[in-house]
């Protein structure tokens, strides 16, 4: 028997020319195109991820889409994104308006995550930073209008820490208090319970991307 390597009937030159160069060219071109077009890892806007999710863009590749976090969630708050999420397909997300994160003290979702996309170092719920609640429409917020609502405040699992009430005089009535809910970004974990409970048809308090806090200014 000979040691003829061309058992497939392809010579080495042929192999290199047709069998290797072309695919490699395709591979490189493909990566180039993908690199340009798949960049916007979070161009879809802010997605509320389960507790402990690492930085948005790294999360997309760190998450292996196994769905174990969603299966571990006792409230079914975590669901897996469908095709609408584009390249985020199959990643876990929380839609606070449907079901917010209720911050289980034992964090079963993080325990379930095999890949480290949900940070295993995170053990205390106070340190979760899924996002930050922001009052996006102050004109519509009932509490800021002077009504006694403050549902977001009372439902906040970190009441008096993440959301506090700043009372001020209601100049219009002259004898009532405006009890304004104020979100403290350095404490807010972004669980979305406030967004879930807001009584207005379009919630005026919503969870957005966490912004690093500037210590000496509140965004009143």
């Amino acid at each position: 028997m000979s040691a003829e390597p061309t058992y497939t009937g392809i010579t080495r030159r042929q192999f290199l020319k047709g069998g290797a160069i072309t695919p490699i060219a395709f591979m490189l071109a493909g990566s180039g195109v993908a690199t340009v077009y798949l960049r916007p890892a979070d161009a879809q806007g802010f997605t509320l991820r389960p507790p402990g999710a690492i930085a948005a863009k790294r999360f997309l590749s760190a998450c292996i889409r196994c769905g174990k976090c969603a299966q571990a969630c006792p409230y079914r708050s975590i669901r897996m994104a469908g095709g609408e999420a584009g390249i985020g397909i199959g990643t876990p997300l929380i839609t606070p308006r449907e079901m917010p994160c209720y911050l289980c003290s034992d964090l079963p979702c993080i325990k379930a995550c095999p890949s480290g996309a949900l940070d295993k170092e995170l053990k205390e719920i106070e340190k979760i930073r899924m996002g930050t609640a922001v009052i996006i429409d102050r004109e519509s917020c009932l509490s800021i209008r002077g009504l006694r609502c403050e549902v977001c405040y009372r439902q906040c699992p970190l009441i008096d820490k993440a959301i506090t009430i700043e009372p001020r005089h209601n100049t219009r009535t002259g004898e009532h208090t405006i009890m304004e809910p104020v979100v403290h970004k350095e404490k807010c974990v972004g669980c979305g319970i406030c967004e879930n409970s807001c009584v207005l048809p379009k919630p005026v308090i919503v969870v957005q991307k966490s912004v690093e806090t500037q210590k000496d200014s509140y965004e009143f």
Binding site: L147, R148, C149, V151, T173, E175, V199
Partner: peptide, 19 residues
């Protein structure tokens, strides 16, 4: 809506009254 002429609440409500 809260009645601004109402002496008790001057146009305000609580969340129950709002709905």
């Amino acid at each position: 809506k809260g009645d601004p002429a109402g002496p008790v609440n001057k146009g305000l409500n609580c969340i129950k009254g709002y709905f």
